[in-house]
Write a protein that binds this DNA or RNA. Structure first.
Lengths: 257, 257
DNA sequence: TGCGTCATTATGTCTAGACATAATATGAGG
DNA sequence: CCTCATATTATGTCTAGACATAATGACGCA
């Protein structure tokens, strides 16, 4: 620890990050205040603040005014996933890529905007390896109505025609609703607890029910592995269902409209 | 555009971000130099630099010394995925969660460290909804040898025992190798091209072969939808295969050791 | 007990200026 | 046409100081 680094901010950041990842500083642990860190590392407070800010961005640290900086509680589980451009990925392996559209349907939804639904198959070396069902909101991407998805895969087309399509895609497990990005057990504010939860300075017993009644719906037993919704900003423009399964065993049976 | 914001850095950031997301500034477009932006927004250059730094972190902007700042080229495709703690997710729906281990096997691999392989089923409201096959590197997580995975699901155990397990999970599509986080067509340096690619000041024709010979291996036709590898830092400690399919149709057939 | 006020504390952000550094353009000399 | 050295440019980072702000504890009053 505290090894040489190109610049102070980076050194501080890596130093603290190492302590957190190693478990030396456990979630909830209070990190020394910025002035002390600045003195310890021999730099300005702004430099320490910058380092801590990066750790906040990385989700490793939480900061609260007056309270201080703390090691963050790990998110329940999150993953960064890369869904590469299939054509490019296959090409990089030296195999030929091919897209074959099976069905292109324009749906007129009562009270809602039209959608375009495209079913097709991705081939690598002339062997199918993925089924795709893509739904595109025509209200959001009117140009898609003119596109020829018999020739070009929807993903390829979207990537080329939507600025920053990849802005904020939302992913959910099949049948399961997307979970909140972060979830943490919330306890009623108690005075002696580690300062991990913000406490308003209320001394009256502001009653907060521990849980709201959950909507008790039956879960749709998931037939599909993963579904993706591509959203550039907040609006959902496209919805993707991808089956990376052995195509011969699932094709006809699962892809019912 | 240029609407009021709590602080200058944020205003600049949002202003530029809006232009990028709207497509007004397309990928490769040069962003005015920091001094000019500082003058335009009436603030110090450090403030502009901070705003641009955040946009770099968000992947919207690229900066190069001497060259300037540019609107980044969108990544091929990336998504942020949330894989919630199943037990918690089910509980939130008001249904009972149950884990049932089916097989726990310790594998001795020649020349490599032992691994623990756990197969099991996740139930919600006494109905199976996911199969899990988890492989844990015992060299990385020796404590896992003592854990009772008949009682506790591996994911739950890992989340509780590994500090920052969720650090940097790597996800790949079934059968497909994880793709590089970013890929971009690389052109030979030419003088008049938009300055999107770093150019060394070589005037000689430093010969660069357009592509290196790809390893031509047959792709393993993917039977499984997604596999996850949990890596706290760089080391891979656990490997997860999850089938969110209708369990009755895939169970016995697919889960061969 | 309950409520408002105030001082304290640690973070949040900004500024003006400085120096470092990488990438590039230019020119000298072969 | 090539190579090397040099100047230029725009970013990268830091500093010291300043003021703003949110959260909190302490205190006094009803």
């Amino acid at each position: 620890m505290t090894r040489a680094a190109p610049n102070p901010a980076r050194r501080i950041r890596e130093d603290i990050e190492a302590r957190i990842r190693s478990g030396e500083w456990k979630p909830g642990t209070r990190i020394p205040i910025e002035q002390e860190l600045a003195a310890r590392y021999g730099c300005a407070r702004a430099t320490v603040s910058k380092a801590l800010g990066e750790l906040v961005a990385a989700g490793l640290v939480e900061r609260r005014r007056k309270a201080g900086s703390f090691v963050a509680h790990p998110p329940v589980h999150s993953a960064v996933m890369t869904v590469p451009d299939l054509a490019e990925l296959i090409a990089a392996r030296g195999e030929t890529y091919r897209w074959e559209a099976r069905a292109i349907v324009r749906r007129k939804n009562v009270g809602e905007a039209d959608t375009l639904q495209i079913d097709g198959i991705h081939f690598a070396a002339d062997e199918p390896f993925a089924l795709e069902r893509r739904t595109i909101e025509l209200a959001e991407v009117p140009a898609a109505a003119e596109a020829d998805f018999a020739v070009e895969a929807p993903g390829t087309w979207l990537l080329a025609h939507i600025p920053w399509t990849s802005g904020r895609p939302v992913v959910g497990g099949g049948g399961l609703p997307p979970a909140p990005p972060r979830h943490r057990a919330r306890r009623p504010a108690r005075h002696a607890c580690p300062p991990a939860f913000p406490r308003r300075s209320i001394r009256s017993g502001g009653r907060v029910s521990g849980r709201d009644a959950p909507a008790r719906r039956r879960m749709n037993s998931a037939r599909y592995p993963w579904t993706f919704a591509l959203c550039p900003a907040e609006r959902c423009i496209s919805h993707l269902l991808m089956l990376y399964c052995d195509i011969n065993t699932v094709a006809e049976h699962d892809l019912v409209p």
